[in-house]
């Protein structure tokens, strides 16, 4: 464990807790893409298949349970909660899951480290996580209203993967056999997807104006 990875995990943790807290307190999911949240639940499900088979550390297991629990809770709130579901904008959140899931699945079947079920699922979860934010970014551009918490949520989500890139660089230089080029490529693609959001986020923060994404 290094400081970059710990900072990355904490940033990721805060991002999902900010979202869960927002939905739980104001009982609204306005501006939140259910599609993205469902994709994240799928990311964690396919990535943490080793939850009960490989014990890494207490921290690792606890964090996996938190991420699984929070992502499924958020999906449950938006789908099932009698008040929250009313604020879900299903007419605008129309990104098709299979446009994202299928290419990632095909890619994972073609490019992976080992052709085993768990390894292909793990690779699939990496590719999926890289593009899972797309429905949310599309929704933000469509609705154009980005309330603070949603802006913070997307920002923290992008920041966590950027911190992970620093962690991969650090581990590459400190651990001789640390080679995870698939992880690195997926992580860089993921962070680049946030790049334009970051640009507009900082612009709005610097000029102290409401965050607006170009149509």
């Amino acid at each position: 464990m290094n400081i970059f990875r710990l900072a990355g995990d904490m940033t990721h943790l805060v991002s999902v807790l900010v979202l869960l807290l927002k939905i739980h307190t104001i009982k609204s999911c306005a501006g939140i893409s259910l599609k993205t949240q469902e994709l994240y639940a799928l990311v964690f499900t396919t990535r943490y298949l080793d939850l009960f088979t490989d014990y890494i550390s207490l921290y690792n297991t606890v964090m996996k349970l938190i991420f699984l629990g929070s992502s499924f809770s958020i999906v449950w709130y938006i789908r099932r909660h009698k008040i929250v579901r009313r604020s879900y904008d299903k007419d605008q959140d129309t990104f098709r899951h299979y446009f994202i899931v299928l290419p990632c699945l095909v890619l994972a079947l073609l490019i992976h480290h080992k052709f085993t079920f768990k390894e292909v699922m793990w690779t699939f979860s990496l590719y999926l996580e890289a593009v899972a934010i797309l429905p949310q970014l599309v929704l933000l551009q469509r609705t154009r209203n980005i309330d603070n918490l949603t802006g913070q949520y997307v920002f923290l989500l992008g920041a966590y993967r950027a911190l992970y890139i620093l962690n991969w660089i650090y581990r590459h230089y400190t651990e001789p056999h640390y080679v995870h080029w698939i992880t690195w490529i997926a992580g860089i693609v993921q962070t680049l997807l946030y790049a334009d959001f970051f640009y507009y986020y900082f612009q709005s923060w610097k000029n102290n104006v409401k965050l607006q994404l170009p149509a």
Partner: peptide, 10 residues
Amino acid sequence: DGESAKHDEL
């Protein structure tokens, strides 16, 4: 092989 059998990152 380069890929550690266990994925120790989240």
